[in-house]
Amino acid sequence: MITLCIGYIGALLFQFLHIPMPWLLGAITAVLCVQLFTNVQLKWHKYFRNFGLVVAGYSIGFAFTPEAV
């Protein structure tokens, strides 16, 4: 639950700063910073992790159109 909250806060911050893909980049950046700069050990259940990877992979892949390439 802590990991989810940290990711959500990062996404909101990136949304406020108008950074592209805040739901992905903001959450990853926030969780990474907490892991690197604090003693907090964040855990994510493997089923949630795998589901998140599928959603992120689909979202990134969906953005690649012939025009984008």
Rank of each mutant, 00 (worst) to 15 (best):
G10V: 01
A68P: 00
L25G: 02
M1H: 13
C5N: 05
I9A: 12
V34A: 04
L4N: 01
P20L: 08
T29V: 07
P22K: 07
W23R: 02
C5Y: 02
G52H: 08
Y58R: 05
I6P: 02
Y47W: 08
M1E: 13
G10C: 01
I60A: 13
G26N: 08
L12G: 10
A63Q: 15
I9Q: 02
H45R: 11
V34I: 14
L25H: 04
I19V: 14
N50K: 02
Y8P: 00
A56R: 00
Q35I: 08
V54K: 05
F14Y: 15
V34H: 06
F16T: 12
Y47P: 00
G26W: 06
Q15Y: 11
W23D: 05
L13G: 03
G10M: 08
R49F: 10
W44Q: 07
I6N: 01
G7F: 04
P22M: 06
T65V: 09
P20G: 03
H18W: 07
A63S: 15
W44R: 01
Q35A: 13
G10H: 11
L17A: 15
G10Q: 10
L42C: 09
Q35W: 03
G26F: 06
N50A: 11
G52A: 13
V40G: 03
T38C: 06
G57K: 04
V31M: 15
C33V: 11
C5H: 00
I19E: 10
A30G: 09
L53W: 08
T3D: 02
Y47K: 10
F14K: 01
S59E: 00
F62N: 07
V54E: 01
M1K: 10
V54H: 04
L24N: 09
G26I: 05
W44P: 00
F16K: 15
V55S: 06
F51M: 11
A11G: 15
Y58K: 02
I28T: 12
I2G: 01
W23H: 11
C5T: 14
R49N: 05
N39Q: 10
L25Y: 07
F64M: 09
Y47S: 10
K46Q: 12
I9T: 08
V40E: 04
A63W: 08
K46P: 09
T3S: 09
V40R: 07
F62A: 14
I2S: 06
M1V: 04
L12K: 14
W23M: 12
Y8V: 13
A30S: 15
M21S: 10
F51A: 12
T38W: 12
L53K: 07
G7N: 03
R49H: 01
Q41R: 12
N50S: 13
Q41F: 01
V54A: 13
I60Y: 03
Y58A: 10
Q35R: 13
V31P: 05
T38Y: 11
